[in-house]
Design a binder for these strands. Structure first.
Lengths: 122, 122
DNA sequence: GAAACATATTCCCATATCGGCATGATGCAA
DNA sequence: TTGCATCATGCCGATATGGGAATATGTTTC
């Protein structure tokens, strides 16, 4: 885990370090969706997603590190549970664009019309 | 741009290829936020974020490729405008977890209590 | 056409990431 | 203790990424 603060030539922004990046991975999104149905042991997660166990463990680790998931030990199993609180900031940020969804359509219309004009004038 | 379908040993999932990943980058989020105020030429974006022009261009390119932004040529400038439609799926997916935000708190409570029990029993 | 300005692209580097496979680590049961 | 089951990690390979710096491309103005 690099100490970005002290690295002068930062190569790539840390990725798996926040909910945004954790959720950018399709498999991890599927895992979170699965966990809405309640806590699950690793093997079950792996089976549900049709991936091997190491892969499931790794994804779960990322999710755990960014706090989107919690682990509970139960015998030889590890039950992972959803902790959706970290998704809230994302929802709010994206929500700030809600009002632009429809506007975008209108603007796109103008945009396309502009292109058409440009073509005609050629 | 790799043809994932035909690559057997996929190394890393394509990243800058969808809105999820585009938005996972803080700078790009700032750009999108800025563009809510209307279209802007590259230089203005760069200045607003205190980054150099090439960097701004690169980020804008990613945003353009995933469709979150549109370009319009105006003289020697290129005006970038927000196209927020691509954010909608994200908002909806994340919204599906809304109901779990408060629950997570409750569950966390149970979780912590469990840990305490465990300690006591030690 | 040359100079000036706005923007895009390219190259290089350090590093992160995901998948695959093999190997540890730990708990439980016989 | 020995297996067996459930996970977690480590290592490798291929590749993507973001920053920095330099350079190319395109447009307007003289």
């Amino acid at each position: 885990m690099p100490i970005w603060e002290y690295v002068s030539a930062m190569a790539r922004a840390a990725t798996t370090s926040d909910a945004w990046n954790a959720v950018a991975e399709p498999q991890r999104r599927r895992i979170l969706t699965l966990l809405r149905g309640g806590e699950r042991p690793v093997n079950e997660v792996a089976r549900a997603l049709s991936i091997d166990q190491p892969r499931a463990s790794k994804h779960l680790r990322v999710l755990r590190e960014v706090g989107l998931v919690r682990v509970r030990e139960e015998g030889k199993q590890r039950l992972y549970a959803l902790d959706a609180r970290g998704l809230r900031p994302i929802h709010e940020w994206v929500g700030g664009f809600e009002r632009f969804w429809s506007e975008s359509l209108a603007r796109l219309d103008v945009y396309v019309r502009g292109l058409a004009e440009k073509e005609k004038r050629r």
